Amino acid sequence: MNKNLIERFFKGDYTEEDQKQVYNWLLSRNMEHEANALLKKHWESVNKSETLTDTDLEAIYRRIMNEVAEAQVIRLLDTDVKKLGSAHKTKTTWTSFLKYAAIVVCAFGLGYYAYYQNQNAGSSSSLGKEATYIEKVTARGQKSHIILKDGSKIVLNSDSKITYDKNFGISNRDIELSGEAFFEVAKNETIPFNVTAKNTITSAIGTSFNISAFIDDSSTAISLATGKVKVVSKGNGNVSDSEVFLDPGKQYLVDGDNRGAIIRDFNKEMVLSWKENVLHFNNTEMTDLISKLERWYNVEFVVLNPQRMTNVRGTGNFKNESLDNVLRVLSYSLQFDYQLKEDKVTISF
């Protein structure tokens, strides 16, 4: 087997004919050692801080064989490979088939190992008193890309957290979000994908959307990029629950107490640019601008004369810029002085 073809396959860069060749190669009983070596090499190339040991690999195999392989992999394999699996009835052959099928699953979603690593890290949560849950957290100044067990992808912004239980993708696809994240939802008409964020629940089958729901923000924004979603705003006090459906390019904005909500068009560059490391401000109030900079650069702001920034608003785009460069540009247009010292920024108008 051409090693370049295998490398392309693990990276997701392959044709249908390439896919057939790799499937048949993976099912060859004398290829286990080489397949394992290539899988480990690719894993370590994209996850430099984590080493995929033999023990880890076997643990992934067991997990996938029990929960994923038969239901997911056989559906993905072509007709010839299915026949190969059904033609051999011995226990040894079937076990071998499932083991190589597990490698195929790993190639489709290398985030599965990270998922497995976190299976035993958790206790009770609002998802269920006895449920073991998984948390993914990004600190200030960091972002992370997550592949879930069902194939859905999440980009998690800085100072954000998602929580889901160990049965995600099996009996439910329920997630709790604090902060901001962009979701690319794998299609599954049987199990809806539900995201609870502050006082909203966003439900989808297969679509992509952004949710911004930081605790210190006064509002929650659900912005739909593709497909369609249903958003339920939970009532508070005398306010009843409300339900709306969004079309692509529409944003649902609801205040913290669900006492006011609107549906409006949104600027994709402004809302989604954070995924590409672009800071975007568009007539942004100074308090919101400071909050975003604090999360983005993991710093603390001190404003010496806050009464003077009441009506101050900023506009600008900054891609992969240092904090000092951003502050220098903003200080010219917004007329403030600043001092940057380690992780503290002092400004005065």
Rank of each mutant, 00 (worst) to 15 (best):
V271R: 01
T287F: 11
F281G: 00
G256F: 09
F281D: 10
D257G: 13
G249I: 11
Y297M: 07
D265E: 15
D288H: 05
N282K: 14
L293C: 11
E276Q: 08
I290Y: 08
N282Y: 11
N283L: 04
S273C: 05
P248A: 10
M270W: 07
R259M: 11
L289E: 11
M286K: 01
E285K: 14
I290P: 01
I263S: 13
D247P: 02
D265Y: 03
D265A: 15
F266W: 04
G249N: 06
V254N: 07
Y252N: 05
V303D: 01
G249C: 12
R264Q: 14
W274Q: 08
I263Q: 05
D247M: 11
M270I: 04
L272G: 03
R264E: 14
H280I: 05
I290W: 01
N267F: 11
N298I: 02
L279Q: 08
K268A: 01
D265H: 09
W274N: 02
K250V: 13
S291W: 07
A261T: 03
P248R: 00
F266S: 01
Y297T: 07
Y297I: 07
E300W: 04
D288N: 14
E300L: 01
W296H: 09
D255W: 00
I262H: 13
F281V: 11
T287K: 12
D288T: 14
T284E: 15
L253D: 14
V302G: 00
I262V: 14
G260K: 12
E276F: 02
L279W: 10
R264S: 15
I290Q: 02
S291Q: 13
V254I: 13
Y252G: 06
Q251A: 12
N267Y: 08
L246P: 00
L246R: 12
D265I: 10
E269R: 15
N298T: 02
N277C: 10
L279E: 06
G260L: 02
D247R: 13
L272I: 09
D257W: 03
L289F: 11
K250A: 14
L289S: 05
G256L: 10
F245W: 12
S291I: 04
Y252Q: 06
F281I: 03
L253T: 06
R295P: 00
G249R: 03
L272F: 05
N282I: 08
S291V: 05
W274K: 08
E300C: 05
E269A: 08
L279P: 02
L253I: 12
S273G: 12
S291E: 09
F281P: 09
M286V: 04
H280Y: 15
